[in-house]
Write a protein that binds this DNA or RNA. Structure first.
Lengths: 271, 271
DNA sequence: GGCATCAACACAGA
DNA sequence: CTCTGTGTTGATGC
């Protein structure tokens, strides 16, 4: 459940499903994913009522009135599931909320995830979320001039590193970046300063259209949503298609190391 | 006048020459090499008497009693010269001290240098000198176990970078490092973790012997001391001898880029 | 596939 | 042949 489309889809589902439910208890199997001691976590959640769920980048924000905000990051491939009253919780959960009506919300991470709560008044000092960058699906804040300036300010940084830095744009990870760069015909290591205006416009458009499209499909087909249903996005152009033909020119897709992450590129189309 | 042998030689000469002289006035042509405004610099120097001159790394420390310490770094190829009463000062000086007895001490830098003064009580907060590493000519502090641990602590750093980092060992620059690495048969980019014990011992011995030898000769032949006399060290093995034969195997010495500095190596002997 | 931290490296500036 | 900051990259661990 990693990147913006999955996270936003989940937040939208949670917003529709959980509004009005009151936290009756917390079920913590792995305390180290909490940002505060369990007792403090309980104090800030139990007895409070979910009134709104939103997302920014890879983070889900759930308002727990009065006065708390719950913050969730599912890391690499984690899941959040809602459970009707009486349903057993998954054995592999790290944390779960039990609501007053008998329903529950469980979280499972296969590697690392963050289950945080902060007093809403202190939300701005929550380090992992307070510095998140622009929302690429918000046309007001992710405006073209801001994007253009961002690339100017980091002229000698690889374009992939810029787009994946959550402080710049929030929500692009190592999955969606692959086809975004392919569609913009950019090599991941191209320096931002060498990306000319026409390419920048193409890239800007592709970022918005790809993420919007994936969101409309409910995210990736190999991820599960709040109701354990897979998303509909599965047709990668080059991402994770090592050795398969480029859909444009037929050249075999290469998997290369780009810094510490892997990239899938068409060596002919992306320069 | 750059590295440890020249700086220590200069400090020894200054110690013998200047003890007891009182600063009568300061002559500042280039105020930007000072660490404080000229008025403050004068306040901390004029009327005070040199009582001791020492060195650590590439820095000269002159105690100006009561209460001040003068700190000098000649940068790349700067000079410090003493002048008898009545002698004119060099036109190219950036700064000079005039002493009460009519003598003077002038400083010239061909690129950048530092002419600092601090209250002796605040010496430990002078950033550029407070973190200087071990004195390689002091057998007590530059002991074998400390050197061995240093290389363990920086396993994946190039050996040249470690030796030239003034925070580790103080006084080795891009001149003496050349023959030190050649004599130890080490390629400059070799990772410290790959330098085995026998090589480490050889390197440790070479650092001490080379610097000691150069100090005994009064430093480099192309540098001038306090009395404008050149040093006696000129017989580089590979340093600055690009294309000349390696003294051991006859292979042509190569000049290569190692990070941001140049290195002269025998490609056969140094691995 | 996440994020933070630290070390290493490159570059510009003085 | 100086040293310092800044920004970027890479490895590590949770």
């Amino acid at each position: 459940m990693p990147e913006l489309p999955e996270v936003r889809h989940l937040a939208l589902q949670m917003d529709g499903e959980l509004r009005g439910r009151t936290v009756a208890g917390i079920d913590v199997v792995q305390p180290k994913c909490l940002n505060v001691p369990l007792s403090e976590f309980e104090r800030l959640t139990v007895g409070r009522t979910a009134t709104k769920v939103t997302s920014r980048g890879k983070w889900v924000f759930m308002t727990l009135d009065p006065g708390s905000t719950f913050l969730l990051n599912l890391g690499m491939g984690g899941e959040a599931l809602v459970h009707a009253k009486g349903e057993p919780l998954p054995d592999n959960r790290q944390v779960a909320f039990r609501f007053g009506d008998g329903s529950a919300l469980s979280f499972h991470f296969w590697w690392f995830g963050y289950v945080h709560v902060v007093p809403s008044a202190e939300l701005s000092s929550h380090a992992m979320t307070s510095q998140l960058g622009l929302d690429p699906l918000n046309d007001v804040e992710f405006a073209w001039p801001a994007f253009d300036r961002l690339l100017d300010a980091r002229k000698r940084t690889a374009i992939k590193a810029i787009l994946m830095d959550q402080k710049n744009i929030a929500g692009i990870g190592n999955v969606y970046i692959q086809d975004i760069l392919f569609a913009a015909r950019l090599h991941p290591m191209r320096k931002a300063g060498d990306v000319v205006s026409e390419e920048r416009h193409a890239l800007y458009d592709v970022i918005r259209s790809q993420l919007k499209h994936a969101l409309e499909l409910g995210g990736l087909a190999y991820e599960k949503d709040l109701y354990n249903q897979p998303g509909g996005f599965k047709d990668f152009l080059v991402g994770y298609r090592e050795g398969k033909p480029c859909p444009v020119c037929g050249t075999a897709v290469q998997k290369i190391k780009t810094g510490s992450t892997a990239s899938f590129i068409c060596p002919m189309c992306q320069t």
